[in-house]
């Protein structure tokens, strides 16, 4: 398995980054660091997709001098998909940060442990 992974080093790094982002999302106590971990997960998936579209020895998909031969250009499809994804990642991050402001209004802190305890206490009052 390691021999097969050695030639796909970019994709393997992307998956390791996905794991690091997931660990940051789950283990950190601060809400802002959780959002940073979520962003790391998203960009690692974009790296994986772009690496799948690369073909060795060919150039960027911009037609020059009227040469429309397939031998000269990489696969442009994953690039187009990732372009949409980047902008959606920005929208989701902005929305999550606005939710952080509201959480700070209600609980007074951004520490996940304290928020959990306060939420449990409020629920047990019913």
């Amino acid at each position: 398995m390691l021999e097969a992974l050695r030639s796909n080093y970019i994709e393997a790094t992307a998956l390791i980054l996905f794991g690091i982002g997931l660990a940051t999302l789950l283990w950190e106590k601060n809400l802002i660091k959780k959002i940073i971990g979520f962003n790391i997960m998203e960009t690692s998936i974009f790296l994986f997709l772009t690496a799948k579209g690369y073909i060795a020895g060919r150039g960027a998909p911009i037609i020059t001098d009227g040469i429309t031969d397939v031998e000269y250009y990489i696969n442009p499809l994953p690039s187009a998909i990732v372009l949409t994804g980047i902008v959606i990642a920005v929208s989701i991050t902005a929305f999550m940060l606005a939710l952080c402001l509201k959480i700070y209004d209600i609980y007074g802190t951004l520490d996940m442990d304290k928020i959990t305890v306060m939420d449990m206490a409020e629920r047990s009052e019913d």
Binding site: I32, G53, L83
Partner: peptide, 26 residues
């Protein structure tokens, strides 16, 4: 990896907008 569109967009968006919004919220 020969994708100039993505490089432009990520440079303008990732290091520009997202980080500025993080700093403003903090």
């Amino acid at each position: 990896l020969e994708s100039p569109d993505l490089a432009l967009t990520e440079a303008a968006v990732g290091a520009g907008i997202t980080s500025v919004i993080f700093l403003l919220v903090i």
